[in-house]
Design a protein around this nucleic acid. Structure first.
Length: 365
DNA sequence: TCTGGGGTCCTAGGACCC
DNA sequence: TCTGGGGTCCTAGGACCC
């Protein structure tokens, strides 16, 4: 029996939240992300409204370029408190529709509807209901992909944006997928696009023509992965794991407003990042075994250096010593620095934290 | 045009052990 | 004198996602 999986994706979520809080922005190009500083700003576009997309803007674009393409746009800094609030309102609604619910980031979720929807028609009805409820209760729109695997549902939610539903079933998946660019496959980005295009593959349809054994012979494990994904053979489950989710690393990084080689400025940034991460680690009762330093020089040349301990610790002073030790190698380079980052990994939760998690879980069941 | 910040996962070489 | 094979851990780099 085929599964029925929903992928719900909030339409240009960060921009939608701004428009919700400022109705006067509606109908205008709204861009969230870094401060454009009249075209001299650093950073990128997080999201933008469809009106802004008309000017060629998209998420990830350098904010300076966006400003040149659309100087009269409404540029705003995201209000992360509101983002969290609106996101949790939506997720609460989605969670009601299925016991198997998996949130991804602040604006996406998967629902396994196999036990709830009778067939694809019924699934379509439920998807409409979800869309209506999110719009009337929260005031924003979403797009939903309905399919028999997670990846196909995800591809589906992107097919009818904004505010649309796409149904992908074993009878129509080839027709829907064939004309799409290979970058619509989640996991194929900029680099893979270039690689596969060199081999003559531009559209998903080009892959669909190739039998499994040839995909494997040509591209190895990657080939097998693509074949299974686009033919709906993927078995990844929607995992309802929000309560026992263990984060694998915690990091903070900052790009300087201007590249710098001022040791005092760099030292104070490192100290600041280290303090902030330790505040979080203490609050969450987390220990770490590995510390990493990331340095990006002027011109974008990037390096990572890390050091592991034999047992897990949490010691702000010791961490700072380790980081400064890792930094020595770069100090000699006498080059201006663009970005500094700290990362703590190989995390261990303390017994106390685990007990608290279990208690919270029991309370919620 | 000039590239944020928070993550995850994968690969590949070298050290080390049996 | 010219050296196996398997497993695991550490480190560095990179692709990708939201």
């Amino acid at each position: 029996m085929d599964r029925i999986i929903f992928h719900v994706d909030l339409d240009c979520f960060f921009a939608a939240v701004e428009i919700l809080d400022h109705p006067e922005y509606k109908g205008f190009p709204v861009i969230t992300g870094a401060d454009p500083k009249k075209g001299k700003g650093r950073g990128v576009v997080t999201t933008c409204s469809y009106e802004a997309r008309e000017f060629g803007l998209h998420s990830g674009m350098p904010i300076s370029k966006a400003y040149h393409l659309c100087p009269h746009g409404i540029y705003v800094k995201s209000n992360f408190g509101r983002i969290r609030e609106i996101s949790s309102q939506v997720m609460k609604i989605l969670d009601k529709y299925s016991p198997v619910f998996q949130q991804v980031g602040s604006d996406e979720a998967y629902l396994d509807m196999s036990e709830i929807a009778i067939d694809m028609n019924h699934a379509n009805e439920i998807a409409k209901k979800i869309k209506d409820e999110v719009q009337s209760e929260v005031g924003i729109t979403c797009s939903i992909g309905v399919a028999f695997t997670k990846s196909l549902a995800k591809i589906g939610s992107d097919c009818n944006k904004p505010n649309g539903i796409t149904i992908i079933n074993p009878d129509n998946y080839k027709t829907i997928l064939s004309p799409l660019k290979i970058t619509r496959i989640p996991g194929i980005g900029k680099k893979s696009k270039i690689y596969y295009e060199k081999h003559g593959f531009q559209l998903i349809g080009d892959f669909l023509k190739i039998p499994k054994h040839k995909m494997i012979a040509k591209f190895g494990d990657r080939g097998r992965w693509i074949y299974n994904l686009i033919n709906g053979l993927e078995e990844r489950k929607v995992h309802d794991s929000s309560y026992f989710y263990h984060r694998k690393s915690i990091s903070k990084e900052r790009t300087f407003y201007e590249d710098t080689d001022d040791y005092q400025e760099i030292l104070s940034k490192i100290t600041d990042l280290n303090d902030k991460i330790h505040d979080i680690l203490e609050k969450k009762g987390i220990l770490y075994r590995t510390i990493s330093l990331k340095i990006r020089f002027k011109g974008y040349e990037t390096y990572l250096r890390s050091k592991s301990f034999t047992s897990a610790i949490r010691n702000k002073q010791k961490a700072l010593e380790v980081v400064l030790d890792l930094y020595q190698e770069f100090f000699k380079k006498k080059k201006k620095i663009r970005l500094i980052g700290l990362k703590f990994s190989n995390l261990k939760e303390t017994v106390k934290t685990n007990q608290k998690k279990i208690l919270d879980y029991v309370k919620n069941v």
